[in-house]
Design a binder for these strands. Structure first.
Length: 232
DNA sequence: GCGACAG
DNA sequence: ATCTTGTCGC
């Protein structure tokens, strides 16, 4: 898929924060997903324990059958330091490169982390959505900002995630009796739709099949058991 | 001021 | 995120 970056990646923390505050004005919180959604892609990155090496993986699934249609992987290094709240700046450059190598443009992107449920309301799911123009949402394993009442233990139960009096996401039970995940919008989708997709994509495990596929592939590539689409 | 802090 | 032993359950 084609992705045109309008500006270079920031290299300092101050520039990164400024970029977030500027780009967050472009986030659209309304459902603009195509109907029907035909393809959905999972995105994840694996890291090396003691080197700046990382592997990004994108896995495109058929939204109906959850069959794998296409994959793309990139092994590279990152310079930006890991800072909570600035996660996108050290993870997204590799992800964007992997997405570029995709033959097809997915209808929907599922991120491993938060979107709106971020201190400045601009987590990596929002950032990736604004950069690509593709509808995105985030499914995170732990809370970053906000409070929630634990949802009922039944799969499909959920409760709002509230930060500063604002609903920024939802705690969603994707499996009976298992810890909830935290869903928030990224771009061109609404929270209800993102929640629906989360339940649809969590068929057997706590996390969406998209995320599980991308997580597994990124680890295999980083370990050298699978060769990447691109190395740089 | 101090601690907490997506992955 | 990554490292790591054992344990519980389908």
């Amino acid at each position: 898929m084609e992705i045109r970056l309008r500006e270079p990646w920031p290299t300092t923390v101050a520039d990164a924060v400024e970029t977030q505050l500027r780009l967050r004005g472009e986030v659209r919180a309304v459902d603009e997903t195509p109907r029907p959604v035909r393809t959905v892609a999972g995105v994840d990155v694996a890291y090396d324990r003691n080197s700046p090496r990382l592997a990004a993986a994108v896995v495109v699934l058929d939204h109906t059958t959850l069959e794998v249609l296409e994959t793309s992987t990139v092994v590279t290094t990152t310079e930006f330091p890991y800072e909570p709240g600035l996660f996108a700046f050290w993870e997204l450059p590799a992800v964007v490169e992997a997405l570029r190598r995709l033959r097809t443009t997915p209808d929907l992107l599922v991120c491993d982390g938060h979107g709106l449920a971020h201190p400045r309301r601009f987590g990596l799911a929002c950032h990736l959505g604004v950069l690509t123009g593709v509808p995105t949402f985030g499914v995170a394993k732990t809370v970053f900002v906000g409070e929630f009442v634990p949802p009922a233990s039944k799969r499909g139960s959920w409760s709002p995630l509230v930060a500063d009096g604002e609903v920024v996401g939802a705690a969603v039970r994707t499996r009976d009796g298992v810890k909830p995940v935290f869903v928030s919008i990224g771009h061109r989708i609404d929270l209800d739709t993102a929640r629906d997709h989360t339940i649809t994509l969590c068929t057997k495990y706590r996390l969406p099949e998209t995320t599980r596929h991308a997580d597994h592939l990124s680890r295999e590539v980083l370990a050298g058991r699978i060769s990447p689409s691109v190395e740089g």
